[in-house]
């Protein structure tokens, strides 16, 4: 059982690595941003307005797909790609970020009023 857990850990690390790698790239982040509205898009749609070729975009999409961040769905004769942000940016994760921003703002407020608060 212990062995099983160990090998499980190694497998997890292997699975996690492509997720990090996939998101650590400007082009792929911008693809994720385009897809995050929830509308599946074709490769042509994703290539439009980009300086990259269709082939390059396809390559990036495959990386995202292998990492499980996007999935391709058939729509008639073409493939469309869709992204589900929910697992990555659940409301809890968002609240953590906002919460951190408030901590910083309130600490600025604290030094602001405490430096001249004795008037």
């Amino acid at each position: 059982m212990f062995e099983k857990r160990l090998s499980g850990g190694a497998a997890k690390r292997q699975r996690r690595a492509p997720v990090f790698a996939a998101l650590g790239d400007e082009t792929r982040l911008s693809l994720v941003a385009k897809l995050c509205g929830g509308q599946p898009r074709s490769i042509s749609q994703l290539t439009r307005g980009s300086r990259l070729t269709r082939q390059a975009i396809t390559k990036h999409l495959r990386v995202l797909e292998r990492a499980g961040i996007v999935h391709s769905v058939r729509a008639g004769r073409e493939s469309r790609f869709e992204f589900d942000p929910q697992p990555l940016v659940g409301i809890k994760e968002y609240l953590d970020v906002v919460s951190e921003q408030w901590d910083q703002a309130l600490s600025r407020l604290k030094s602001f009023v405490e430096t001249d608060g004795l008037e």
């Binding site: 982040l29 994720v32 995050c36 929830g38 942000p85 929910q86 940016v89």
Partner: peptide
């Protein structure tokens, strides 16, 4: 926060 759509949250991270 439940009023905010998911894509806004993603933007926040970006």
């Amino acid at each position: 926060f439940e009023n905010l759509p998911e894509n806004l949250r993603l933007e926040a991270f970006r």
